[in-house]
Nucleic acid binder design. Sequence first.
DNA 1: ATATGTTATGTTACAACATAACATTTATAG
DNA 2: CTATAAATGTTATGTTGTAACATAACATAT
Lengths: 154, 154
Amino acid sequence: MSLNIDQIIKKSQEACVLAGVKLTTKRKNVLIVLLSSIRPLSAYEIFERYKDQFNESLPVMSIYRMLDFLIREKFVHKLETANQYIACAHITCDHQHETPQFLICDNCHVVKEVGIKRNIMAKLEQSIQSTGFTLSHQQLELHGICEHCQNKPK
Amino acid sequence: MSLNIDQIIKKSQEACVLAGVKLTTKRKNVLIVLLSSIRPLSAYEIFERYKDQFNESLPVMSIYRMLDFLIREKFVHKLETANQYIACAHITCDHQHETPQFLICDNCHVVKEVGIKRNIMAKLEQSIQSTGFTLSHQQLELHGICEHCQNKPK
DNA sequence: ATATGTTATGTTACAACATAACATTTATAG
DNA sequence: CTATAAATGTTATGTTGTAACATAACATAT
C-alpha cells in the first residue's frame, strides 16, 4: 500500500468518525483495491483483485454492499455509462467539490476526474431549470480518447 | 399508429433511401414500439411490447441488432445510464442537431431530450480539450426530478 | 433459371452486471 | 451479559448484453 494510499485511507477513517459510520476492514480493503487501480473496475473485477490483494474471498453481494457504503460516503463514484467503480480523486481535499466530470478514454479505459468550472455548470443548470427540471446526482460522463492514446500510433 | 408516428416513419423511410440502407418491416416496427412509448424502454421491454403490438415474437438478439441499426441511422438514442432506448425527438427535423442532452426523471422515468446551447457546449468542450482529451459520442445524461413530479405530493 | 454474394434474421449458449430474501455473525448500548 | 442493531454471508434469481454459428431473403451476374 503506497504512502499516498495510506494517507487517503487515514483521511477516510477520519471522515467516517465525523459522519458516525464505520469504515470496517473489508470496506477499507475494497477502497484500497480501487485506489490501487489506475482504471475503474467492475464489481466482479474488484472481487478478483480483492482475492489477490488480501488473500480472502468476499461474496460479490458483499462487494456491492461495500460499494454502496463507499458511494454513500462519497469515497467512490459509480460510472453509470460503464457499470464500473472508481475511487474519488478528491478524498483528501477539504474544500467543497465541483460537480464531478469524468473523461473516459474508450481506447485504454483510463478515466480522468475533473471538476466542471462553476460558471459553466451554472449556465448548464440554468438552461435546464428553465425547462422545469431539477437536477440531482450531478455527474457528467464524457467519452472520448485521452491524450496518450491520441499520440500513439495504432 | 398515430398520425404523428406515421409522419416520423415516413421521414425515416426517406432518410434510409438517401443513406442507401433498408428500413425493413421489423426495424420499422421496433421504431414504432419506441415511438409509441412515453418512456425509454429496455431491450427486453421492447421485446414484450413488440409481441403485444405486432402479435409476433422477435428474438431478443434481433431486437438488439435492430436497435444497433436504428442507433447507427440516428433514429434512436441509447441512454447509457439507464440501459434503455428512446426514439430521437428530432427525426423529422432537417437542421443540424445540437448535442443531445437527456433530462431523466428518477421518479416517473420520463425523459426529455433537449439540445445543449452551442455556446455552453463550446465552453465545456474547450475546458475538456485543455486537458488533452478529445470527445466522441457527445451526449449528456442528467438525472433529476421533472416538473410534474415536483408539483405532485408524494 | 441458376449460381453467387450480401445483408438480415434466427438459435443457442453463455458472460457480465445486479438485487432479493433470508441466515448468521459481530459490535455495542443499556 | 444480553438485547438489539449493524454488518456480512448464503443462496437463488433477475437483468442486460454478446459470441458463435445457422438459415433466410434478396440482389446481381451469368
